[in-house]
């Protein structure tokens, strides 16, 4: 009974798939087991039959003729220099027989047979040597072709590499130039950056100024402008205008055609804020006795949020805390 392991090895051996130590071990087992030998033979026959599965090729008559020609050449007498030792013995035998004078014909026959065997063996060895030599020369030619191809390819690769090296050097030089140019540009840009930074500072200052101006313009939008009308009978030309800046709690008052004051009198400005029970004091002023005009800046004595009206009264010199005199101008 052959186990599966040996069946497997036998199959692989039949297909020449065993190598090295595995082959050696199996051949030792094979030599000692006739059943295993029979199995290998059967499997080798089965595997040989696989040749029939290939697409059958027509047998060329030329190939047959070539094979026959080859064996005809192989059957020609071998060169003298190869078989001479055998013939030497062959020719020497009669001389030896003559010298001995007593050797029997049977002994001579045995010697002749031995010599013929040697000749056959030498011929076989010569044929095998020729085959081996032919194979070796073919192998050498193949190796030569492969080496030549490899050298050719290496030379081509070397030429390509040299060309690549030249290109790389050119590229490197171009890159160096680019680096130099870029360095110069960087220096110029650094200088420009300094200038720009300075300009940026200036611009920031301008922006700050503009922002302040805009803020001021914004404040201007909040200014309250009030026209004051005359409250004096017989003097309708008296007019005035008041401009109030709420954020600064200050304003400008421009009057025209107000009557001239006595020496102990002042005009006094009042700001009417509903939060206070009495109008807030805006200060005293006089006018040009000839034109009755005056432009003054004034500040509120108390914080003012809402202005309902401006009023001007005629008071004693220096003004009073609470309006006492007659109203001269009033504007809401």
């Amino acid at each position: 009974m052959i186990d599966e392991r040996h069946e497997e090895l036998a199959a692989l051996h039949a297909l020449d798939l065993l190598e090295g130590a595995e082959l050696a071990a199996f051949e030792r087992a094979l030599a000692a087991d006739p059943k295993l030998q029979a199995l290998v033979r059967e499997l080798r026959e089965a595997s040989a039959a696989l040749a029939h599965t290939a697409a059958a090729a027509p047998a060329p008559a030329a190939l047959k003729a070539r094979i026959l020609a080859t064996i005809d050449r192989a059957e020609r007498p071998a060169p003298d220099n190869v078989i001479r030792p055998g013939f030497g013995v062959w020719h020497i035998l009669p001389w030896a027989a003559a010298a001995c004078f007593g050797l029997s014909a049977v002994w001579l026959g045995q010697r002749a047979s031995t010599a013929e065997s040697q000749i056959v063996a030498l011929r076989n060895e010569q044929t095998l040597t020729k085959v081996s030599l032919q194979t070796a020369l073919q192998q050498l030619e193949i190796d030569r072709l492969v080496s030549a191809k490899a050298i050719e390819e290496t030379t081509q690769k070397l030429a390509a590499a040299t060309s690549d090296l030249g290109s790389t050097r050119s590229l490197l030089a171009a890159r160096d130039e680019q680096v130099t140019s870029l360095s110069a540009r960087i220096t110029a840009l650094a200088s420009s950056a300094t200038v720009l930074e300075r300009q940026l500072g200036d611009t920031r200052q301008q922006v700050a100024q503009l922002t302040a101006d805009l803020k001021a313009q914004g404040d201007l939008a909040n200014y309250q402008i009030t026209a004051l009308a005359s409250m004096i009978e017989g003097s309708p030309k008296s007019v005035a205008a008041a401009v109030w800046n709420p954020s600064k709690q200050e304003g400008v008052l421009k009057v025209e055609n107000l009557p001239a004051l006595a020496a102990n009198e002042d005009y006094q400005l009042w700001i009417v804020d509903p939060r206070y029970p009495n109008p807030v004091d805006g200060g005293v002023f006089t006018v040009d006795p000839k034109t009755g005009a005056r432009s003054i800046s004034f500040k509120s004595k108390q914080p003012v949020e809402v202005i309902n009206a401006f009023a001007v009264t005629r008071e004693r010199k220096g003004g009073v805390p609470v309006a006492e005199g007659p109203f001269v101008l009033l504007g809401k």
Binding site: A51, H52, A54, A55, A57, P58, A59, L63, K64, L68
Partner: peptide, 18 residues
């Protein structure tokens, strides 16, 4: 040898070509 060639050469050549 010629006869053996006639018998074997078909499958042998087919296998070798494959």
């Amino acid at each position: 040898l010629g006869d053996l060639y006639d018998r074997f050469s078909g499958p042998l050549l087919g296998a070798a070509q494959q």
